[in-house]
Amino acid sequence: MKVVIKTYSVFKDVLGNEIELELKEPLTVRELLRILEERYTLPRDLEKLVIVDDKVVDENYVIDRDTTVHVAPPFSGGGRLVDVKILDEDSEVDFNQLLKGLMNSGAGALSVFVGFVKKYVEDHEVYELEYSAVNSVALKQLEKIAHEEAEKHGLNAVVLWHYLGKRKPGDVTVIIATVAQNRVSALNATRNILERVKKEVPIFKLERRSDGEYWVVGDAKRYQRRASNE
């Protein structure tokens, strides 16, 4: 199993831009970092931010295949993590892993918003929501919002993930997480990102419920779907 280690900032000065390791069996991130500290003198006194497959992972994450692992010190000042994704309906999110990774960013506040499907709307039972989008445009717009709000509020990190496809009551639809030096910046950024996503991103929502099907536009406007459109 070949694992490529790419390093940044002060770690790059120690290990160089990247190194390759040939491993005979799976190992955890904790075990990998120990190898880097003992064999390659990676500084022990600095926290490590580890990213695999574009996700921040914790020390219990198991590396069990050929992959690239990014290792960086905590963000400060100008450095930041911006993680934007469109998820399909079969994707599952490990919230423990997500939060642990963000809490290791070296900042002082973490704000998280998780949207999920309601069971009842206007006293009518909701069966499911179906999200569709102009994917390429939606992703670019999500990235634009994330970067702009990160810059505006001086965030250390921002995560913005939105689901497409069918979602049942209780299913997650959108995840927004912001990390900042203080709670005011984190909370304001999360609120602004949510409102901008609703207004600026071409993601469309069809609500199927006990009294029919409705296109949901904005926060509350609902237009009943015509039978001829089915």
Rank of each mutant, 00 (worst) to 15 (best):
S228W: 13
T68S: 10
V126W: 03
G77F: 08
R183F: 01
D64V: 03
Y120Q: 09
K2F: 08
D45Y: 15
R222I: 11
L187H: 08
K118N: 15
V121L: 13
T7P: 11
T68V: 10
H153K: 13
Y40H: 15
F11G: 14
L129G: 06
F113W: 09
H162P: 02
K24C: 06
E31N: 09
S132W: 11
V57E: 12
T178M: 04
N229W: 15
I193H: 03
I35L: 10
Q97A: 07
L102A: 04
T173R: 11
Y131S: 04
Q97E: 15
M103W: 08
S105M: 12
V4Y: 07
R80I: 01
H153V: 03
E18I: 00
I35E: 09
E143R: 10
D88C: 02
S132I: 09
D211Q: 07
H124M: 13
V197P: 08
G79V: 08
L155Q: 05
L129C: 02
R226F: 06
A177E: 04
G101R: 10
D83C: 02
V52W: 03
V69S: 03
R208I: 05
V201Q: 14
S210M: 06
L36K: 05
Y40P: 11
F95S: 10
G108P: 10
R65F: 01
Y120M: 12
H153A: 08
N135Q: 15
Y163R: 09
S105I: 13
D88T: 11
V82C: 07
S91P: 02
E20D: 10
